[in-house]
Nucleic acid binder design. Structure first.
Lengths: 334, 334
DNA sequence: GCACACAATGTTATCGCTAACATCTCAGCG
DNA sequence: CGCTGAGATGTTAGCGATAACATTGTGTGC
């Protein structure tokens, strides 16, 4: 910066001001400075700037896994809305582990993020303690936790599964099986399972057809494995509700091999509405969610949180992102 | 830090040393300090540290898009190998645009990354100039560019497509069509197309069956659209080679609707070996690549680059990550 | 012609940490 | 018993920017 200042015949401070378009620099001087900056390829050091302004420009963002297009898309949308206001994501994946989450947060806090975005798969006590203490807005996304720390963006996975199950029951399915992960403490998968159980019980139906397999995120392969052994488990089921479209597609594939007809012998529904599901054959009924919507809404929320002055109206704690049931060929019409 | 120091009855410097396990602090003192740090929930400010040590701990990482599981997985693997040496990824996606790439790099350089990882879809002149000037190792991944800037990790997309095409010809296919993006300046898609053309010409076959549609990354929907109109274009083709598994799956879906038999009426091959392809019906022959391998190898390379002392053996410029042809039901056996 | 307001620029101190050098302490030794 | 040197700790001076205040210049109104 010194060099630029010298070349422009001004002080470092003026260069700094010119670079930040902070007003009070004459247009002539600014133009001259910017030209020199470009010519010298000078790039300001933002760590130094942050130290001084106490604004890191970072948004610490955690997702359960990138190995899932939904989370990846939501990050991409978030990134797009943050970059226009000069914020940079620092990304981590929890792998559905609360202790890993704690470690990551601890390490990201060193970067002094201005906002923390994370999923809810349960948190350790220390995580909550750290988050509360740092006095930085915390946004939980992709789920509405029982006791939110601060802000939330997303939908209730339990409610979504409940709605789908109820709709299945209305369509005449009674012996519905539910496929979800074997290892999940309090993930979105577990929430969906809870919604399924509640809907079944409300309808006076038995929710004992529980298939637990693998760990999150469930893959197509997991579904295929389940499908291959399916008749040994709950061969009497008339419908299978999967925690995600991926295993639903795997089931489809296994059933095709076995000559089981979907939806005539058995119906299948998934969760997520991945692109895949529309083009599967039969195409998959599913719960449609809006990953980019979650990312975008999170971005908007962050904009509001950081751009806010003290007399602005309060910001709502929860931003609901809608889901919707999408019916395709893998279920019979009512 | 001051507070911790006071509580422990030592100077700030000793606290700093204790936190970095920098040797010369007595075990007793360190233990005492760490206990106080934990109790006070003190988290050091890494921007300040970076400013002093001139080591940001950042790796600027670009991918074309997160909207593609391969890139997302490769980022995840890279992240896993970097976090154990205390490096943090700052992520961006170019959206296959060289000007966007330039903007992102410029903004990331403000963070003083220690390494820059980016894809090759062409670079603007200024991008190259900036990268060369900053004197930071640059790693291009997922492709071998014609003129690498520094290091590369990946495989030649052209060579991979050439090998697949040659194998298809050996299997008796002669009227092969190639499906790729309409808008691609110099993407991996274009490289694959070049490989296809070269192989066809080597075999004395015509490479005129070119279907260009949509923009990268190609989706299942794109493939479906192409499939729906296929017979109007190159109805005489005996095989379709797609730039990615996604459109290949879409084609499959369209052909199923039309009653076209794969592979008896026409063969289909994809590129990437997404999980989907193994469970499609018929399952898709494809070029298998190793996204996690690319991420991991990039991580290893970075470890070497940063951990290196001047008399270490030189580091190879290119790390080859193998691809392999995988034959499934969507092509006939030779 | 002079005080005054405001715009444009400069100066100084500081952000929170660490490198580099300085100091202190005490064991081991002749 | 004083000297030496290594280990443990302290002190000082930055890292590269910006906040806050200080200064200079310039036109305006009376």
């Amino acid at each position: 910066m010194e060099d630029v200042a010298r070349a422009a015949g001004v002080s470092r401070m003026t260069v700094s001001r010119a670079l930040r378009s902070d007003g009070s620099v004459s247009d002539k001087t600014r133009a001259r400075i910017l030209k020199i900056v470009k010519k010298m390829n000078y790039v300001p050091d933002q760590s130094a700037g942050s130290l001084s302004t106490k604004r890191s420009g970072f948004v610490a963002t955690l997702v359960p896994s990138l190995n899932n297009l939904h989370f990846a898309e939501s990050i991409q949308a978030l990134n797009e809305s943050l970059e226009i206001i000069g914020l940079q994501i620092i990304l981590g994946h929890t792998d559905y582990s609360t202790s890993r989450e704690e470690r990551l947060i601890e390490s990201m806090l060193k970067r002094r993020p201005e906002v923390i975005v994370l999923p809810f798969d349960g948190h350790t006590e220390r995580t909550v303690q750290l988050l509360k203490q740092v006095n930085v807005p915390v946004i939980e996304h992709w789920e509405i936790p029982p006791t939110p720390i601060d802000y939330t963006v997303g939908f209730s996975n339990k409610a979504a599964a409940l709605e789908m199950t109820t709709a299945l029951i209305e369509r005449g399915y009674k012996r519905i099986a539910f496929v979800s992960e074997a290892e999940d403490a309090w993930t979105r998968g577990a929430a969906r399972r809870a919604g399924f159980i509640e809907a079944m019980e409300q309808a006076g139906l038995s929710a004992h057809r529980m298939i637990r397999y693998g760990k999150p995120p469930m893959s197509i392969e997991d579904g295929y494995q389940i499908g291959s052994a399916f008749k040994h488990h709950f061969g009497d089921a008339d419908c299978i509700f999967c925690v995600s479209d991926a295993p639903a597609f795997g089931l489809l594939s296994a059933f095709k091999e076995q000559g089981l007809a979907v939806p005539d012998d058995i119906a299948i529904v998934g969760f997520g509405n991945f692109e895949l599901s529309r083009f599967a054959s039969p195409s998959l009924s599913t719960v449609e969610v809006d990953p980019r919507g979650i990312g975008r809404a999170t971005g908007e929320l962050i904009k509001n949180l950081l751009g806010r002055s003290s007399d602005d109206p309060p910001i709502p704690r929860h931003t609901a992102i809608d889901f919707k049931l999408t019916w395709r060929e893998s279920t019979k019409n009512p």
